[in-house]
């Protein structure tokens, strides 16, 4: 540090100030747009399958629907992911795991809830063993359908990208 103890008495902690200034600058329009553009095209969903919609999610990542063209590639470790797809029903046992995985992801992070079950229980609405994802996680986009078609997954991704680029995504504000 250049200024030492006496300097920080007058100028404040330079490093902290610099960090504050950098954050202020990043939140300003040209840089923020650049950042959000970057985030929008590097969505890494964590490989976390909660229920049977995972079969359609796998089809969305497969060649025919090829979600990778949106910059969207499932990845194993939650530490390197910024998107969580709740693939269908979230049972009570799985909900604990979902929260653990979500907490391990670095910010900014986003949640997409896939399938009717993830909206309000779907066909299992009166089951005693399910949790509604919106009660425990900040969901950005819901995908209706039981199961949603892979095209619907792609549409949700595009929608999330738009939200991120407009700065509307909840994950950016946390």
């Amino acid at each position: 540090m250049v200024c030492g103890i006496s300097g920080s008495m007058w100028l404040g902690d330079l490093e902290r100030t610099a960090r504050k200034a950098a954050r202020w600058l990043v939140e300003r329009t040209p840089i923020r747009s650049l950042r959000d553009w970057g985030i929008a095209f590097s969505l890494w969903p964590v490989h976390f399958t909660t229920a049977c919609c995972g079969a359609e999610f796998a089809a969305a990542s497969a060649p025919r629907f090829d979600a990778e063209r949106f910059g969207f590639l499932p990845f194993v470790a939650p530490r390197q992911c910024n998107l969580m797809l709740i693939e269908g029903t979230l049972t009570k046992k799985m909900a604990d795991a979902a929260i653990w995985v979500y907490e391990q992801m670095p910010e900014p992070k986003f949640v997409i809830a896939m399938g009717a079950c993830a909206i309000d229980g779907g066909i299992f609405w009166n089951s005693y063993n399910i949790v509604r994802p919106k009660d425990i996680l900040p969901v950005e986009v819901f995908i209706p359908g039981c199961p949603p078609r892979p095209e619907a997954v792609a549409r949700a991704v595009i929608k999330l990208q738009k939200r991120i680029r407009r700065g509307e995504a909840i994950g950016l504000k946390v």
């Binding site: 049972t91 066909i123 005693y128 039981c146």
Partner: peptide
Amino acid sequence: GYVHRTVEKLAETKNYIQIIPLIER
């Protein structure tokens, strides 16, 4: 048990034809 959605119990609350989509999930 991470995907236990209680199909057997829910089937007891549904008409026979409604069980078809239930057991397909």
